[in-house]
Every structure is written in structure tokens, then in C-alpha cells.
Design a protein around this nucleic acid. Structure first.
Lengths: 344, 344
DNA sequence: TTGAAAGCGCTACCAC
DNA sequence: GTGGTAGCGCTTTCAA
């Protein structure tokens, strides 16, 4: 029987070491090999039913849990898919995508692990990830360079996938080019006849990866026309917004792409409080197509963003893992479509 | 020299296996022991400078990265802090808390890993986590039971901390009792003279952990008074909100606690579109004190929630790891204070 | 049907 | 100063 009486407090300060398969074997009166066969349902070998029972019973009594590190050390590989945890607060879009991905990967029998790599820079981070010998690494953003990819592959990663603005040599890429978001917004504003277009760029440096290309996209969409594009820096707080609103008229803008829906809401509110009509005096368009945009008055025009489904990415990963020799795939996966509502 | 010429394409399909410390030793012309000493800066032993250089050089050429599993297998422990990834989209509050935590733990030389455990139930999940032999496990929500804690501890976790509504035997607890949120809101509404109070309860079953206690809290705050409390179910979409608004007057409520700021915004908009004045006809109060509440008109009253700082939790973890015999601590860490604005 | 033993990559004890 | 080597927990071939 188990040594800890069921009825006593489970806080047993006994320094009992953690049970190994050898302990299970001992208790069941069999060899470690047999324990392994039984617990892994190894089909290549047939174990008698009584023995199986004894092993299972022993494992249960000891509370045996296999040691993943030992197992994958022996096996020479794992099924861990590693993903650095994003260090900026992410919105519902990313959360949903990530959940889907996780679900799809677990269906394919991979284990998804988000690795917190605060404070690690570029190749140093790649090395830290490589220490875990993941079978695949999914890297959002643009932190990974060619050397990082090489480190990961050398250490056994069979698939390295970047989710970001650009391709990295040797890695599969899900290219999420936010230029397209800006371009859609810009084209929309141009088509609706606006000529002096502002583009909000968040002050938060962590958002630069998105804000820069979105800004550039607007510029691209309006280049070759008589429209002007003005960068408008804005921190995500009320004070900053109202200060901006106070000098808004002096900017002489007839439309603004507000980076995303949240910044759009912030700015809209400040403009309205300043007596600036939307879209009459200034048109506003956001991005991300959040629920809140539909709730604003006027209803917020926005750029809806299509991310790849988690299932798609999971399949890419699986394909890459099974065929590591195959040349890296690169897919443009960010779709942007304008949802025209009332604010533009 | 390294075998892959620097100038050729780095897509070397060569099935070269991943370099081990033995490879480094061979290339440097020393023993594996020496490699280990050098790369870990072992202070107990002095290695000559030329040797150090040779080892470092060889490691670099091979792109050697130590194998974390092998290392922790040998060491008998790791410094991995495991946290199951939340399966519901989390708001900025949690994101920020988590980032702080991660940062604070990495300062203490722990590695934080979020483990995606979709589809795993209770003790099964605990077993999956235990396989990784983390030194500490932080579990948000209420999924972990006494048996789960026991499994984790038996498999070597020196600290198990739950972040949720209740204590679990044997685990440290950061008790986040959302009753207090409801109580604050209820007390506020009562103090302001409202008597027929509605409480929005999201339909999303994943939010029950929060919505149930928040609802109960309001009930508690109003029990013993002549005020009534009515549960109002609501899905997070416009259609549901406008249907609710259409029958709002028939509910005869003079105030509503809207679960959180986002649901509050959804409901407020629907009510206003229905011609229901806020707070004149119905007062509204949200929770979470998000930026968006300040931007609504009328400005949204809300319940500000104080979570523990990531640093505090990190210190608790560290203490628990160093003193695994110590009795589990339990702290009430959820502070709720009403921020009165214009909507109530 | 079951057991003995090798070995995955690494570190740390002991010898030289 | 440096090297040999045992052994962490596990799986799997080969024998019995």
C-alpha cells in the first residue's frame, strides 16, 4: 500500500525522492524493461495481463510520473513546439490565433510551450531556445536572424517558422506584412476623397514592428496622388489624446488612420470632446475590427485583419517536421480588408 | 575549421547530427570534463587560459548548445517554473501581471514556461506538467485539485501555487476572490440609492469562474436590504445586447453591474440606442478599470482591481522553492475599489 | 514472456 | 590543471 495514509494531512514533509520506473519495477516485482513496455503499451511485445495489472497498480500506488527529459534524451528527440512568449500585451486576435494553434498542434500530438524570454536578445535568445531541443520553433516578430535560425537547426529543430514582416534565410515564413493594413486604409481614404491624411503612430516602442509598416503602407497608397501623409505620434493615455486634439485643427487633416481600433477610440473621443465632427471635420479609420468599433458612435470604420488559422500553421509545422529537407515555404498570410462604417 | 563554408547557402541538407560536448572536446583536443568546466565557469577548478580559449573556440565553431534535458537530468533538478497557458483570451490586466512575473522570475534566475494544456482535464493535466519536472508550478484558475497538487509535489515540484478563488490543500495560494468585486459594486450601488439591481452574467462558460462570484458578491452586498438582485444573461455580441435592451424596461432595473467594462460598453450602447438614459433611467457600473471606460460617455464607473505584483509572486515562489518544508502560505491578493465616474 | 545491459548528453567526484 | 568515469531516468536491442 501507499505509505501516506489517506486520512492524514497530505503535507508530508518526508524528503521521499521522486519515484522512478525502477521503483515501480521493484514494487511490481518485474524488471524496468517490463515497466516500460507496459506503461507505453509497446505493441512489439506481449506482456501477460496479470503482469500488466501489477505494473499499473504499482505505478499508481507510487504516483509514478515518467520523466520527460530522460525520455527525450533517450529517444533523441521530443515533440515540443516552442514559441517565445510575446513580451507586449497582445490583443484578442493573437490570443485566439494562438489558442487555435495550440489546439491544432495538440491534435497532431505536439506539445506547445511558450518560453518566456524577457531580456534575451536575438541570437542569445535563440541559443536559450535551442537548449530545450524543441522539434519546432515558432517565432513571432522580427527578433530572429539568419544566425539564430542556424543555431536552432544545428541543435536539431526540424522546423523553424517565423511569423513576422520578413523572411529569414533558412526558415519557413508566415509573412505578416502590416504594410497591407496601411495600404488598405490609405486606399479607402483616398477613394473617399480625403486629401490630408494623418497616421497615428503609437509612442510605445514595442509596437513599432506594427506601426511602422502600417504607416508606410498609407504612404504607399497615397504616393503619386496629391494627398499628403502626416505622422502623428500618440501615447495611449487620455492626457496625450486631449493635447493632440487641442492642436488638431492646426494640423489641417481631413482624415486619420488611427493605427488600430483602440487608438481610434481614444482619438475619436478626444476629437469629439474638442468639438471636431467625425467624419465631417475629420474622418477616422481604425484597424483590427474589434467589437468596440461597432459600439462607437459614429460606428468606426476599420481594417479587418485575416490571420492564418491556427490549423494551417499547425499543418505547416507538421509538414516541415516530417520533411525537414524540404525548402522553406513562405506564405503571405495577412489579409486586410476595409470594413466601411460611419466614421469615414 | 567548421565544415560548412561560410559563403555557401546555409541550407545545408546534410544530416549532420547535433554537436555534443564530446564533439567540442574532440575538436579542442581536451576531455569532456574540461569542456564542462570551461563552459560552466566552474570555480572549483582552474583551467589554463590557452585551454579555455581552445574550448570556447571549438564550441563556437561547432555551434555547440548544451542540452538542457541532459543537464537537468544529471543535476536532478531544473529551474523551470511552469505555468499552464490560460485557455481563455485574457485581458491586459493579466498580460501585464504575467509579464511582470516573468521578468521578476528571470531576475531570480528561473525560466518561465507556459505549457499549453488544451484538452487536458484536472489531474491528467497535472500529470502532464509533472513530466517536465518543474521546480515550481503556478496554476491560475480552479482546475487543480488536492490530488493534482500531490502529483506535482511527489514528482519534485518544490512549490505549487494556485492563483484562483480557493485554497487547495498542500499548495500555496494567491486567493483571488472575485466576490469582492461584486461586493464593491453592490455596496456602491446601494449607497447611491439604487434598489433594483441587475447583474450581467456572460454566457461564455469559460468566464463562469469570474462571473459567478462577482454575481454572488453583489447579492451579498445587497442582502438584508430591500434591494433586489436580478441575474441578466448576455452573450458578447451586438445582437444579444440589443435584444436585451429591447426588453430592458420590462425588467424594471434602476442599476446594473455589467460584469466588466467591455460588457458594460456593449450594454450601455444598446441601452442608449434604445433611448434609455444612463444613469438617469439605469445606472451602469463595470469592472477592471480599462481605458475604454474613461472614454465612454457618460464616463463609466468601474471596479478597479488590484492584482498582486509579479514581483511579489516571484518572491513567494522563490521562498517556497528554497524552503519547501514550510507550510503553504495563503494570501488574499485581490483588491477591489470602486472608481466612481458618471454612469452611476 | 521477461530480464540484463547499453547508452542518450551532461556534470562532478576522484585520480593522476 | 586535466582526464577517466559513474550515473541521472529512460527505452530498446538482444538473450534467455
Amino acid at each position: 500500500m501507499v505509505q501516506i495514509p489517506k486520512t492524514s494531512a497530505p503535507t508530508s514533509p518526508a524528503p521521499h525522492s521522486v519515484p522512478t520506473s525502477a521503483d515501480v519495477a521493484r514494487l511490481a516485482g518485474v524488471s524496468r524493461a517490463t515497466v516500460s513496455y507496459v506503461l507505453n503499451n509497446t505493441s512489439a511485445v506481449r506482456i501477460s495481463e496479470p503482469t500488466r495489472r501489477r505494473v499499473h497498480q504499482a505505478a499508481k500506488e507510487l504516483g509514478y510520473v515518467p520523466h520527460a527529459a530522460a525520455r527525450s534524451l533517450r529517444a533523441g528527440h521530443s515533440r515540443m513546439v516552442l514559441m517565445p512568449a510575446p513580451d507586449v500585451p497582445v490583443g484578442p486576435l493573437y490570443s485566439q490565433f494562438f489558442n487555435e494553434l495550440q489546439w491544432a498542434l495538440s491534435r497532431l500530438d505536439y506539445t506547445v510551450v511558450q518560453y518566456g524570454s524577457v531580456g534575451l536578445q536575438g541570437d542569445e535568445a535563440a541559443r536559450a531556445w535551442a537548449e530545450l531541443r524543441p522539434v519546432a520553433v515558432l517565432v513571432p516578430g522580427s527578433g530572429l536572424g539568419t544566425e539564430g535560425v542556424a543555431v536552432l537547426k544545428r541543435s536539431g529543430a526540424r522546423a523553424v517558422v517565423t511569423l513576422g514582416p520578413d523572411r529569414v534565410e533558412g526558415a519557413h515564413a508566415l509573412i505578416m506584412d502590416h504594410h497591407e493594413v496601411g495600404r488598405s486604409a490609405g486606399a479607402h481614404l483616398r477613394a473617399r476623397g480625403y486629401r490630408r491624411v494623418g497616421v497615428v503612430v503609437p509612442e510605445d516602442p514595442g509596437l513599432e514592428i506594427f506601426s511602422k509598416p502600417r504607416f508606410e503602407g498609407v504612404r504607399q497608397a497615397l504616393s503619386g496622388t496629391d494627398a499628403s501623409v502626416t505622422e502623428v505620434s500618440l501615447a495611449y493615455d487620455e492626457e496625450a489624446a486631449s493635447q493632440l486634439a487641442a492642436r488638431w485643427r492646426s494640423l489641417g487633416l481631413d482624415a486619420v488612420f488611427a493605427y488600430n481600433d483602440e487608438y481610434a477610440m481614444l482619438l475619436m473621443r478626444a476629437l469629439q470632446d474638442e468639438g471636431i465632427g467625425i467624419p465631417g471635420d475629420t474622418a477616422v479609420i481604425g484597424a483590427d475590427d474589434l467589437m468596440l468599433g461597432r459600439l462607437l458612435r459614429p460606428r468606426l470604420s476599420t481594417v479587418h485583419i485575416d490571420l492564418p488559422s491556427g490549423r494551417e500553421l499547425a499543418e505547416l509545422v507538421d509538414r516541415a517536421v516530417r520533411e525537414p529537407g524540404a525548402p522553406p515555404e513562405a506564405h503571405e498570410v495577412l489579409g486586410a480588408t476595409v470594413v466601411h462604417r460611419e466614421s469615414s
